[in-house]
């Protein structure tokens, strides 16, 4: 359904070009659920941003159902059926939750007013709330997820949906994402949560800007633990060297 073909991404920061992603080959199929996991800063959100058209890749192509969409903008991709729930949703002064949900449903076929309830927010309490700093981190995050559920795109990318969500709601969240997944949808969840890694068809491990491993939970889980220890050991050793030189 969604295919990332040999993606390279460099971003220009303060005049310098820094490599973010390289050699990304991913083919997300309809009806399947995927998890992208890996260390902080490894490039998971960047992959989502390339898929959504927020970042333009420096190399490679993006395909949706066989059609090359690399040159298409965010709006067009959204209308073609790609949706992305942000890791850090922006806040809007004056815009209400109901306004946001209405915008989300404008370009979707399935009208779904129950999305707030599904993620554990009572519509009566939240529809008229403003999406500004008056909402807590967990609330804004849940509304972001509800917005993607309302939009109901064919390709759904959730970026760390569990972040900031309390334990009780987390169970509910997993159920909602699972239940709303259909034969013709592709669900991609960026996550560090074992429970989420357990529910998907395939786990994709991203390290240092590329796919380092993919497979089911039993294959990937030991690897995640090991690489976490590795990078700790590496940084510890680095510290040792630094302190060795330190004239105290």
């Amino acid at each position: 359904m969604l295919k990332l073909d040999n993606i390279y991404l460099e971003l220009v920061v303060e005049g310098r070009s820094i490599p973010i992603l390289h050699d990304i080959e991913l083919d997300f199929q309809a009806g399947k659920m995927y998890a992208l996991t890996g260390p902080n800063g490894s490039g998971k959100s960047s992959i989502a941003r390339v898929a959504m058209g927020i970042y333009q890749p420096t190399g490679g192509k993006v395909f949706l159902n066989g059609e090359d969409i690399t040159a298409m903008g965010i709006t067009e991709r959204a209308r073609m059926g790609i949706g992305y729930a942000f890791q850090q949703p922006p806040r809007f002064k004056g815009m209400r939750v109901v306004d946001m949900l209405e915008l989300a449903m404008k370009h979707s076929d399935g009208l779904n007013c129950q999305v707030l309830r599904q993620i554990g927010l009572c519509p009566d309490d939240y529809l008229d709330r403003t999406l500004d700093n008056s909402l807590s981190g967990g609330e804004i995050k849940r509304i972001e997820i509800a917005t993607l559920l309302a939009q109901n795109p064919k390709v759904r990318i959730f970026d760390e949906p569990e972040a900031g969500i309390d334990l009780w709601s987390f169970e509910q969240l997993i159920d909602v994402i699972g239940d709303s997944h259909r034969e013709d949808t592709t669900t991609v969840i960026i996550s560090h949560q074992e429970k989420i890694l357990n529910m998907v068809d395939e786990i994709i491990l991203i390290e240092e800007g590329t796919v380092s491993m993919r497979g089911n939970r039993d294959k990937i889980w030991p690897q995640i633990k090991e690489s976490a220890q590795c990078s700790c050991r590496r940084s510890c050793r680095l510290e040792e060297e630094l302190y060795a030189d330190c004239p105290r």
Binding site: I54, G73, A78, R79, G83, P89, L103, K106
Partner: peptide, 9 residues
């Protein structure tokens, strides 16, 4: 970007 990702120009 958020609103464009919902299909708005």
């Amino acid at each position: 970007i958020k609103l464009m990702a919902l299909g708005l120009t």
